[in-house]
């Protein structure tokens, strides 16, 4: 783990967890984190387990099977819904990050009339119950003449996702060293360039965290989607909600397993890749 640090002699060598924390502190935080991860993953492990269970019911282990994966791959409707969710969530994430980050920067960096009001208005989508948001946006879209579909769905999702990015970025901005931007400006960068080259990299962890939250929220949204989606943009949550009535299908467990497995692989691959690059 520390091998690469030897190639960065300028920085002080960083230890594994805490720079100089007592060992007991390290052990405590490590164990605590492991416990919370266990809590987060218990239902997920169960779901993976059931995706290989030869029974339609989530109760008893009957026997090993991969038939749910086979059925899933033939289930065009479910796969289509999953694709729709993925498309909508990805576009929503990008838009939310752009809007959320630039809004946070504007509110932080510049002083303009009604700024405080604006800062409060941004929280409306967060506190507004989903159904109110869905219905009011539906009425708005109809009045604007926008046909229901991907566009309306993405607009609606972005509207309730970007405040999450904004709040995270705002927190990171607090206590930022003003010298950062000033130095860039002194060196002749335009404010936009300074923002792009200096501030954005500094904000990156918050942007990534915000993107993760926006993706998750959009991917799983049900009620707003009900009111703002069209026939071509039926997403996975709409499908899953209906399936509950006839009994949750193990194909859904298989789908979740595949998706989680694929992302986990992707993340690990990117880690390995970046490690190779740096050594």
């Amino acid at each position: 783990m520390t091998s690469s640090n030897e190639f960065a002699p300028v920085l002080p060598a960083r230890r594994w967890w805490l720079p100089r924390g007592p060992a007991i502190q390290r052990v405590f935080f490590g164990t605590w984190t492991a416990g919370v991860f266990a809590f987060l993953y218990i239902p997920i492990l169960l779901l993976v387990f059931y995706s290989f269970n030869d029974s339609k019911l989530n109760l008893q282990w009957v026997g090993f099977t991969t038939k749910w994966y086979g059925l899933l791959l033939q289930n065009e409707v479910l796969i289509r819904a999953f694709q729709n969710s993925l498309i909508v969530a990805c576009v929503t994430t990008v838009l939310s990050v752009v809007i959320g980050t630039s809004a946070a920067w504007l509110l932080y960096r510049y002083r303009f009339p009604a700024q405080q009001t604006l800062g409060l208005l941004i929280f409306i989508p967060m506190v507004m119950p989903e159904v109110l948001m869905g219905v009011s946006l539906l009425v708005l879209f109809v009045n604007l003449g926008l046909p229901l579909g991907y566009t309306t769905l993405i607009i609606a999702h972005t509207t309730f996702c970007f405040p999450f990015v904004l709040v995270g970025v705002q927190a990171r901005l607090q206590g930022i060293d003003p010298a950062l931007e000033e130095a860039a400006l002194d060196l002749g960068a335009t404010p936009l360039k300074a923002f792009w080259l200096v501030i954005v990299p500094y904000l990156m962890p918050a942007i990534i965290a915000g993107a993760l939250m926006a993706f998750t929220l959009s991917f799983d949204e049900y009620i707003v989607t009900v009111f703002t989606s069209g026939a071509d943009s039926q997403t996975l949550p709409l499908k899953v909600y209906g399936m509950v009535r006839v009994g949750l299908n193990p194909q859904l467990n298989a789908l979740s397993t595949l998706f989680i497995g694929a992302t986990a692989l992707l993340v690990i691959a990117s880690q390995v890749f970046s490690r190779n690059k740096s050594t």
């Binding site: 219905v135 539906l138 009425v139 879209f141 109809v142 046909p147 229901l148 009900v226 009111f227 069209g230 026939a231």
Partner: peptide
């Protein structure tokens, strides 16, 4: 009826 009356689709 809500979505129908709003004229969504």
């Amino acid at each position: 009826t809500q979505k129908l009356f709003a004229g969504g689709g």
